[in-house]
Every structure is written in structure tokens, then in C-alpha cells.
Amino acid sequence: MYELDAVPDAEQVWCVGAVVLDAQGRVFLQRRGPDRSLFPGCWDLVAGHVEPGETLREALAREITEETGWTLQRVVRDLGVVVYTGDDGVQRHEVSYVVEVGGDLTDPKLEWDKHTEYAWFGRAELPRILQNSPPFDQLLHDTVARALRP
């Protein structure tokens, strides 16, 4: 597991992803708006960049609250790190975690200027992540599939 309470290497761009599961074992995803500079219109985890001096845990908690209004209660497991280069040419290291959150899972407080919709994805919905998607969504698909494994 990546050390949650350590500040990651400032020489690299780091991101965190939160895999939130509901009582039915489905993963919460939100669709990025069409005007987003990275991955417009794609499904995404609750995720974002780690700010300078911020630990992975602090970034994870901040992103969860900013993007959904929920609060981080517990990190359940580490899903590993994925290294990718976005459309902007920047290489990112994203570490994703299955988490438990506090709050009403039926009423996320999305940042509607950044996201257009949300949905819960179970195993049966995995192919939907890949429909008309760029290579990044294969990474998202694989992360969600790992999270849904028993």
C-alpha cells in the first residue's frame, strides 16, 4: 500500500482516486463535462491532483468532499498506481483506493460545472465505461474491475 500519510515525490505529478462502493457493491462514477481539458465527456472516479505538501490521505479526503459532499471514513484497500500521460502531455501517477464514506450516497453534491451526471456501475455495467472511449477509459475500466473483484 502506498503510504497514505506521506507526501509524494514533488518531482512527479500525483493524483488520487476514490472508489466508493454502495450497499449493492456498485462503484460511483461521474461523467466529466464536455468542456474539461482532460478526458472530456468520460466517466471518472472521484479523483484529483495532490496539492504541494499534501499527503495522499489529505488529497483523497479533500477530493471526496469537493466532488461529492461526502466525507472519507476509511481506506479499505489500495488498488495500486497507474502511470499515464494525458492529452496535455503531462505524465501523472494516480493511486486509487477503495474507500468508505460518510454521507447520503443517494444524494451526491456534484460540482455541476465540472460533471454532467453520475451513475453506479456494477459488473454488468463495466462495458458501458468503454463505449466510445479513449484509452484512458480502459485504465478506468480496469481499476473499477479490480475494485469489484471479491
Rank of each mutant, 00 (worst) to 15 (best):
L56F: 13
S96P: 10
P8E: 07
T143W: 05
A119F: 03
G69F: 04
H49C: 01
A59W: 01
H141P: 07
A147S: 13
V19T: 03
V99E: 09
Y84A: 03
A59C: 13
R26Y: 01
R36A: 15
L72P: 09
C42N: 11
C15R: 13
E100A: 15
P8Q: 10
D137W: 08
T65K: 09
G89Q: 08
L140H: 09
G80E: 10
L21I: 06
A119R: 14
G86L: 04
R123N: 04
V13S: 06
F28G: 00
V50H: 01
V13K: 06
E63M: 07
Q73D: 13
I64M: 08
G48F: 05
L56A: 13
P52I: 05
W112R: 14
L79S: 02
V98A: 07
D44E: 09
A61M: 12
L72E: 10
T71C: 12
D78P: 05
E3L: 13
A23F: 06
A147H: 08
R57G: 06
E67V: 05
V7E: 06
L139V: 13
G122H: 01
D107C: 08
L140E: 09
A61V: 13
E94L: 14
W70C: 03
E117L: 12
D78W: 10
Y2K: 14
T143M: 13
W14L: 03
R146N: 08
P150N: 09
D22C: 07
P8V: 09
E3G: 05
V27T: 08
G102E: 11
N132A: 14
A10D: 14
P135M: 13
R92H: 11
Q73W: 06
T71W: 12
I129L: 10
L72F: 14
R74K: 15
R146D: 08
D44F: 06
Y84P: 03
I129Q: 02
G103W: 05
L4F: 10
L110C: 00
L110K: 00
R57T: 07
Y118V: 00
Q73K: 14
E111M: 15
R26F: 01
D35F: 06
V20R: 00
D87M: 14
A59N: 07
L72T: 14
P127E: 03
S37I: 09
G48I: 09
E117R: 14
G48K: 08
T65Y: 05
E111T: 15
V90R: 12
N132F: 07
P52K: 06
P134A: 15
H93I: 11
E67P: 04
V16C: 03
A145M: 01
G33P: 09
V20H: 00
G53D: 08
L4T: 05
T116A: 01
G17A: 02
V99H: 10
I129N: 00
L148Q: 08
D5K: 09
G69M: 11
W70R: 04
F39T: 04
G17C: 03
A147L: 12
P127F: 04
L29V: 11
R57L: 10
L130V: 11
V90S: 03
Q73C: 09
V82H: 12
A47Y: 00
L72H: 14
V16W: 00
V27P: 00
F39M: 03
E67L: 09
L38C: 01
V20F: 02
A61F: 11
H115I: 01
Q138L: 15
Q91D: 10
R36F: 03
G41R: 13
Q131A: 14
A10W: 11
E117H: 12
L56K: 12
